[in-house]
Design a protein around this nucleic acid. Sequence first.
DNA 1: AGCTAGATTGGACTCAGTCAATTCTGGATA
DNA 2: TATCCAGAATTGACTGAGTCCAATCTAGCT
Lengths: 147, 147
Amino acid sequence: MEQSAGDLLRRTGLRSTAQRRAVLTALQGRPHATAADLEEHIAGAEGASGTLSRQGLYNVLDDLTRAHLIRCIEPAGSPARFELRVGDNHHHLVCRTCGRIEDVDCAVGAAPCLDPIQDKGFTVDEAEITWWGQCGPCRSRAAAQHS
Amino acid sequence: MEQSAGDLLRRTGLRSTAQRRAVLTALQGRPHATAADLEEHIAGAEGASGTLSRQGLYNVLDDLTRAHLIRCIEPAGSPARFELRVGDNHHHLVCRTCGRIEDVDCAVGAAPCLDPIQDKGFTVDEAEITWWGQCGPCRSRAAAQHS
DNA sequence: AGCTAGATTGGACTCAGTCAATTCTGGATA
DNA sequence: TATCCAGAATTGACTGAGTCCAATCTAGCT
Ligand SMILES: [Mn+2]
Ligand SMILES: [Mn+2]
Ligand SMILES: [Zn+2]
Ligand SMILES: [Zn+2]
């Protein structure tokens, strides 16, 4: 049985507020959304979801991230992006041309999935991997340009 | 025989300007410096290095990065950082507590040193690995706190 | 129904850059 | 070694992405 956003929040010890439920709901089917994406979607939503302040949005994203209900990634050159997919230690492919981001399963599944060859005295808890390249559509477009 | 910053620039097809030489020089012994670090160091430097505008600094950093004379990394939560160490595809350890950044050699040495298990149609040219954790000093400090 | 710790709001503010118009200069040429 | 001009630097306004703080509101316990 699926659990509602409200249940999920309460089970985690967070109060179930309209703003938090709206963010969790907006994130479904909108992976790697930015705060601006979420703000726009929630403001323009049909239901009475209504509105939340910019500060409220950032507070919610921060609370949910710290509770591990969502994950935040920050690829170079992009504002922070959020996703519901947590706990599987997956990685990302990023297109240098259009910024498109795709999930890549982790071969290991648990963090840190990779050890540094020198740890310099650090206690490592995560190995974050970002593959940079060009996505299919951008590659085709670039090839066509060359005429 | 070592080559001067001026030679390096000219050999790369870039004009040798005081501003570019100052940035290259400031970066020696100052790995992973931010634009602000460099601005401060160059402004307060002894020689007649004098000054460069903020816009000039960003232009120089951008030109040098595109010429592959320096490399830019952007760990989550940090402003961009620059280093002279290029071409060896090395990776980074970042302390979640104090932000300290350490270099980690790449076991392979050439990019992309790691293949994604799904490429989603991308042409991958680089695998960027960031290990997150806590450095030795921060770990000790945290342990002491617990008294 | 009342209470209060926790959550949200509005508005000013900061940090890290970016834009565009103007002025300057490295180094190629005559 | 003087001239010239594309490429580089400067100035100052501006933007995107958050962050700070004091005041207000509310979820959910009693
Ligand atoms: Mn993802
Ligand atoms: Mn490095
Ligand atoms: Zn693309
Ligand atoms: Zn540390």
